[in-house]
Design a protein around this nucleic acid. Structure first.
Lengths: 109, 109
DNA sequence: TTAACATATGAATGATTGTTCATATGTTCA
DNA sequence: TGAACATATGAACAATCATTCATATGTTAA
């Protein structure tokens, strides 16, 4: 007969957050899971930048950057302000830096 | 004429890690970007578990879990030990907990 | 060694997603 | 108002990926 782990399962499942929250967590990290978006977040590490500056930096089209900024904004990872024709993007909060920082530590040790 | 940001770019690009490292960072977060894998990591939060217990917990096939454990192991996020027929998986280090913890904070505030 | 169990793996498929291209929206200045 | 600039957006395509199914590997006990 297959082995038994009722006890363990009872204990572990009691400590699991809701499916919805776990899904949201996965969706959040999915946003970090793309090199272009990582580069954008890294670029905004110190200071805000406009869209065309980011495109220049990453040598990618304005459209591609704009699409990715939309994804980042939907996840509340970046925020923006308009100044005339130009729109400046910045990191939305400190979590971005600490998440990237922890990831950095993990792969560089 | 389009506006100029040579100065900014010079400064920002000097602070950017290598493309290879940024790629690795994206690849790492890609592993976090799946609900099944998030659930597995959460389940292993407190204690090690065998493959079939995880499959029971998540109500998924043994094969699906095994495939995902392989991805997690390749990213050095989980480790395993054999005990007879059974193989127990556990979290590989503390970064997993802190990355998930930061993500959790971000979405719950 | 044979049966039962636990896990791993390769191929196939359906779904998701990043980029491109063309174009639309919004802003400034002459 | 019209031209130039900055950004956003929708559709389409190629590539990536999670799961399933069938089967292989490894372990134990009779």
């Amino acid at each position: 007969m297959p082995h038994n782990h009722e006890e363990l399962l009872k204990h572990v499942s009691a400590d699991m957050p809701s499916d919805e929250l776990l899904q949201d967590l996965g969706d959040l990290f999915k946003v970090f899971g793309d090199t272009t978006r990582i580069k954008i977040m890294y670029a905004l590490h110190e200071d805000e930048m406009c869209v065309c500056a980011i495109a220049d930096l990453l040598k990618m089209t304005q459209s591609a950057i704009s699409h990715q900024l939309k994804v980042l904004k939907a996840a509340n990872l970046v925020a923006s302000r308009r100044e005339g024709k130009t729109i400046y993007y910045r990191l939305a909060d400190e979590h971005v830096k600490s998440i990237i920082g922890q990831g950095y530590e993990h792969i560089t040790e």
